[in-house]
Design a protein around this nucleic acid. Structure first.
Lengths: 149, 149
DNA sequence: TCTGAAATCCGTTTAGG
DNA sequence: CCTAAACGGATTTCAGA
């Protein structure tokens, strides 16, 4: 797996704006569009490129609060069943199976503190197998980026 | 701010694949490409669309482990200074200012447990103002999505 | 908001060094 | 790994309903 400087420019450009035309990258680095195209195919085949996605701004939809919730279980065997239930809650955007304090750790978006409370009490804590939760509210996010290449 | 069914199709399509041609969406919903184009401009003006980004697969780069680190500070006044230092660590992909157990909560990617240990001992814990840390290792991630519309 | 057409530009393939 | 050429199809703009 060789990733040279040209590949890095292609990647950095498209991480920033996935709709940058291939030909504009080609002009930038001074090779043909077809060559950029071939390199993109290579990077996709390597699975280094996972996809191209529109990013939504949750705040415009009213989701102003991010919270992390550590989930304790009655027994560790229930991870799968509980995760399946958690998947049905649309406000949950990440779920991790973890070692440390909690077996399950999730990230949720909510519209207000009341919404957060309601999610915890009416959705998350009513799932069978969950014994209790610990919440961490993100007041603001200073870093949000991908791994650097 | 009105988002109708057509807007939702546009958004869902581009969230899944940001490079879907406007004209293919147009055929899907049965209106002209120009109309889709106008709606996209509208959604961008609303700031609902935050951007279009290539998503990298950290595993292909060797980053197989995700960890969350709760950071305790000597004094709460040091949040800004410490965050600035944290930003210099490339493995840190998220940093949150939080209420709860920790004032700062970060997400990091690492290549191995040794790498994680080295990051904690040689990078994070050497930052002036950090008193101690608590680590949560993600063994696997079951959910990774955006807010639903 | 939408359409349809025009103009311009792009992605992709192919043949070849 | 690259180029150049060519085709099909895309984005974008604009006038008008």
């Amino acid at each position: 797996m060789k990733i040279d400087g040209i590949d890095k420019i292609i990647i950095k450009t498209l991480v920033k704006d996935a709709r940058t035309p291939v030909l504009s990258i080609a002009r930038e680095v001074g090779i043909s569009g077809a060559a950029i195209h071939q390199r993109l195919r290579k990077l996709e085949k390597l699975k280094l490129i996972d996809g191209y996605h529109m990013k939504l701004n949750p705040k415009v939809l009213g989701y102003t609060t991010t919270a992390f919730v550590g989930v304790f279980l009655d027994s560790i065997g229930e991870v799968k069943a509980v995760t399946k239930q958690i998947k049905n809650i649309p406000e949950v955007v990440e779920s991790h199976y973890t070692t440390g304090n909690y077996p399950i750790f999730i990230k949720i978006l909510c519209k207000s503190n009341d919404h957060l409370l309601s999610l915890l009490q009416n959705n998350i804590q009513t799932i069978k197998g969950i014994s209790r939760t610990e919440t961490l509210i993100s007041l603001s996010q200073q870093i949000n980026r991908q791994i650097s290449i």
